[in-house]
Computed example of a mutant assay.
Amino acid sequence: MTFARALVFGQTGGIVLALGALAFQPPAHGRMMLIPMTAHAAATLVPRATGNGAALIARGPAGSLIVSGDRNRLQAANILILAAPPAGCAA
């Protein structure tokens, strides 16, 4: 493989990865999936979400929650926040 060809493949791969990452970027306000990363985060996920103004929509896979709320109010240690567009969620 020539250098030019490798460069094109590398750039194409980078663009695909960037677009994939943007698809999971949570909105500033709206539907989000909260994924607990520790047992303590899982145990306190519902009270933390509702206490910060989020409306519960549904339970997601593996102990996660689908909520509607403000991302800045929901950010916390040991909780991963991803976008939850209606097309990707059954709820």
Results as ranks from 00 to 15, higher is better:
residue 6 A to W: 10
residue 31 R to L: 14
residue 66 I to L: 13
residue 35 I to G: 00
residue 27 P to K: 10
residue 24 F to H: 12
residue 73 R to S: 12
residue 74 L to G: 01
residue 7 L to D: 05
residue 52 N to D: 09
residue 68 S to M: 05
residue 56 L to K: 11
residue 79 I to Q: 02
residue 87 A to N: 06
residue 6 A to C: 09
residue 2 T to N: 15
residue 58 A to S: 13
residue 18 A to D: 09
residue 4 A to F: 10
residue 45 L to G: 04
residue 2 T to H: 09
residue 43 A to R: 06
residue 59 R to V: 06
residue 43 A to T: 01
residue 46 V to H: 02
residue 25 Q to W: 12
residue 89 C to P: 01
residue 15 I to S: 15
residue 26 P to G: 03
residue 55 A to C: 01
residue 20 G to R: 12
residue 72 N to C: 01
residue 85 P to H: 07
residue 36 P to D: 00
residue 29 H to C: 00
residue 23 A to F: 09
residue 45 L to K: 03
residue 52 N to P: 05
residue 20 G to K: 09
residue 19 L to R: 12
residue 43 A to P: 01
residue 2 T to P: 09
residue 33 M to D: 01
residue 84 A to S: 10
residue 67 V to C: 14
residue 12 T to W: 13
residue 58 A to M: 05
residue 13 G to S: 14
residue 17 L to D: 09
residue 77 A to K: 07
residue 15 I to M: 13
residue 18 A to T: 14
residue 86 P to F: 09
residue 62 A to T: 11
residue 36 P to K: 00
residue 26 P to R: 04
residue 1 M to P: 05
residue 47 P to W: 00
residue 44 T to R: 01
residue 90 A to G: 06
residue 60 G to V: 10
residue 15 I to H: 13
residue 26 P to F: 05
residue 15 I to L: 15
residue 67 V to G: 13
residue 37 M to K: 10
residue 64 S to N: 13
residue 81 I to W: 01
residue 88 G to K: 07
residue 88 G to T: 04
residue 58 A to Y: 08
residue 7 L to W: 08
residue 39 A to D: 06
residue 87 A to G: 02
residue 72 N to E: 13
residue 83 A to V: 00
residue 5 R to W: 04
residue 32 M to I: 08
residue 29 H to S: 04
residue 10 G to V: 11
residue 76 A to M: 05
residue 34 L to I: 09
residue 88 G to M: 11
residue 15 I to N: 12
residue 85 P to V: 00
residue 60 G to A: 15
residue 88 G to Q: 13
residue 81 I to R: 00
residue 24 F to I: 14
residue 67 V to H: 10
residue 17 L to S: 14
residue 15 I to K: 14
residue 85 P to S: 02
residue 52 N to I: 04
residue 49 A to I: 03
residue 49 A to S: 07
residue 83 A to Y: 02
residue 2 T to K: 13
residue 19 L to K: 11
residue 35 I to M: 02
residue 78 N to L: 00
residue 74 L to M: 07
residue 8 V to A: 12
residue 67 V to M: 12
residue 29 H to N: 03
residue 77 A to P: 06
residue 31 R to F: 11
residue 68 S to N: 11
residue 11 Q to M: 14
residue 1 M to T: 12
residue 73 R to W: 05
residue 79 I to V: 15
residue 82 L to A: 04
residue 29 H to I: 02
residue 37 M to V: 05
residue 89 C to I: 08
residue 62 A to E: 14
residue 36 P to R: 00
